[in-house]
Amino acid sequence: MFEVIKQKNISDIIMDQIKEMVYDGRLKVGDKLPSELELANKIGVSRASIREALKALKEMGLIDSKVGGGSFISNNFTDSLSGPLSLMVALNNTDMKSIFEFRKVIEIGAISSAAKNYTEEELNELKEILESMRLVSDEQILGKLDREFHEKIIDMSKNIFFKINMKAIVDILDRFLHVSAMKSKKEDILKIHTEIYEALKIKDEKLAKKILERHLEEVEKLNFDRRN
């Protein structure tokens, strides 16, 4: 009925304080933390406890440390979050078709947001990726650029949760996506990606979503239809 109350380590309490400051906006990406000595004096703990807490936060990906430069709130936290998610999917032996179905849900939702939220700079970057796809003949490079094109759409959505989840599942699907690109004709790949780009360019959310849905359904059929 009753549970034993476990006393938290001092380093855990320090971590909680720093995380709370991130949650409420007192610490933002790029902000520099006080030195170990300053933190120890402010909180009233030993430098060893501060060092232990900072080490744990670094392992979590919340902070970056620079030799002789101190500790900063990281801007690469999404990579740290997507890594464990990728491992979870792999350890549970999730089949590729299920992962791809999840990818469809994420990306179709993301392109709707992207059509409304992208910047002109991002649209130009998407166009540059498309132009690079036209120029390459190597299938591996084409597959890599294909991935970059879709990841750029995720970035354009401005939704961090789309980005975290897409990063995790694309890491799992990476080899599969390469094989997928090899099964497709280059002209077909270019045609559908050009259509997606043009729909985004005119900010036609419904059209962009419709074209992407068709594209992903074709990829799914090509790779999971047992007759292929």
Score class of each variant (00 low, 15 high):
E218T: 15
L27V: 09
K167V: 06
K191A: 02
N92I: 09
G44L: 08
F77K: 11
S157Y: 03
E101M: 14
L54A: 00
R26A: 11
V4A: 12
F224H: 06
K8N: 12
E20N: 15
E38A: 07
E122Y: 02
M15T: 01
S98L: 13
K152T: 06
G69V: 05
Q140K: 15
T194N: 10
L177I: 05
Q7A: 15
Y118I: 00
K66D: 12
E217F: 11
R175P: 11
H193F: 05
M1I: 15
L87K: 15
V105M: 07
I106N: 01
D95A: 11
M182N: 08
H150C: 00
T194K: 08
D174V: 06
D188G: 06
E20S: 14
D204I: 00
G83F: 15
E213F: 10
K201H: 03
D16R: 13
E36G: 08
I10F: 11
L126T: 01
L91P: 03
V22P: 03
I73M: 01
E213H: 10
E36K: 11
K32H: 10
I153Y: 01
L33T: 00
M60C: 12
L173H: 01
K185Y: 10
L145H: 04
I164D: 09
L81Y: 12
K6L: 14
V89G: 04
V29C: 11
L85T: 09
R214I: 12
E107K: 01
K104S: 06
G69C: 06
K158F: 12
F100N: 01
